[in-house]
Amino acid sequence: MKENVDRTFAIIELMEDLRDIWRETSPTHTLSPEQKEKVLSIILDANKILKRMEEAIYD
């Protein structure tokens, strides 16, 4: 279960990267193509980690 602790931190860290984008683009949060790509990549990575965590809980 130590892996799940690491995964928990990894997700929080990804969210902090996402938070930076909201800060840089406030108040309109209009994203450039690069920022859109980054946001989508963060969401993808977070989903993957959450999925692995879910699987580990069921195992």
Binding site: E13, E16, D17, R19, D20, W22, R23, S26, P27
Partner: peptide, 19 residues
């Protein structure tokens, strides 16, 4: 506030954290 708005409070701008 830092996420919703542009915050221009001089006391706070240099202390804003990065990720």
């Amino acid at each position: 506030r830092e996420e919703y708005y542009i915050n221009v409070n001089p006391l706070q701008t240099g202390g804003r954290t990065n990720s």
